Simulated scan of single mutants.
Amino acid sequence: MPKIIGGSLHEHREQTRQKLYAALSALMAERGFDAITLAEIAQVAGVGRTAVYNHFPDKESMLLGFITHETEQYAATLQRSLDDIEDPVDQLSTYVRQQAQLKRVYHVAPGPELRSVLSRGAQQRVREHVVIVEMILRRILAAGIASGAFPEQDLEVTVPLVNACLSGRGVPDDGADRERAIEQTEAFVLRAVGAAAPVPA
């Protein structure tokens, strides 16, 4: 019988999942999702190959679990970063900066986009978790409209436009170029929703 990690079976299962997610993330950063196998993930995680199937029936379900976990963790971190900020303009600036940080710690590249890797059903389940983050942006914009910080606008249009801008924006990894790119993105988004934004240096 395999050795139990942690103080209980529940803790053991959770810690094993975290090891699998860490291995999946590391391998995706090297080669992309389509180029790795469950056997490689198990090896890097230090988990028996058969034990992987106690958690995930296939590679797609593991990726889906990983994305769900990461999205929930990110949404909680994002909400904590906003809890002590009252001004909707400052909240939106923080949202933009958090999105830029997200791209550094969570990505599926290199390799094909998720649309070409996941089945349609899995894509829909990913979409359901993305909505968690969109709801935070929607609350920020609604509060800004209510306070007069942003003009009246259709949030059904604005929310996906803002997120499309952020998800498609390449940000350098380090240094002054990175900060300048984030500042310009922040100013662009604030202008796009009708807020007064400082001109980047």
Rank of each mutant, 00 (worst) to 15 (best):
D83R: 14
G148A: 10
E72T: 09
A75Y: 07
D34H: 06
L27G: 00
K3A: 13
R138S: 00
Q15T: 00
Y21P: 10
Q91E: 06
G121R: 00
R13N: 15
E179Q: 15
G48P: 10
G65C: 05
Y106K: 08
G144N: 02
L24W: 03
S116F: 13
R180V: 15
P160I: 05
E40T: 02
I145A: 09
Q18I: 02
Y106S: 14
L141D: 00
D84Y: 12
E186S: 10
G48E: 13
G48C: 09
T71F: 04
F188N: 11
S116A: 13
A23H: 04
K19L: 14
T68D: 07
D90A: 13
R139Q: 06
A42H: 01
L27E: 06
S119Q: 06
R49G: 09
R115W: 05
A181R: 13
Q15V: 09
L161S: 11
A42K: 01
P110H: 08
E152Y: 06
L114V: 07
D174W: 08
A35T: 05
H129T: 12
M135F: 03
K19Q: 12
I85Q: 03
Q91R: 15
D87Q: 10
I36S: 14
R115L: 04
L38P: 05
A195G: 09
Q43L: 03
F66H: 05
V126D: 02
D83G: 08
V131P: 03
S93W: 00
G121V: 02
E134V: 04
I41D: 04
G111A: 01
R49C: 15
S167F: 02
Q99Y: 01
A192Q: 13
R49T: 13
V199D: 14
G32I: 01
D34C: 00
M1F: 00
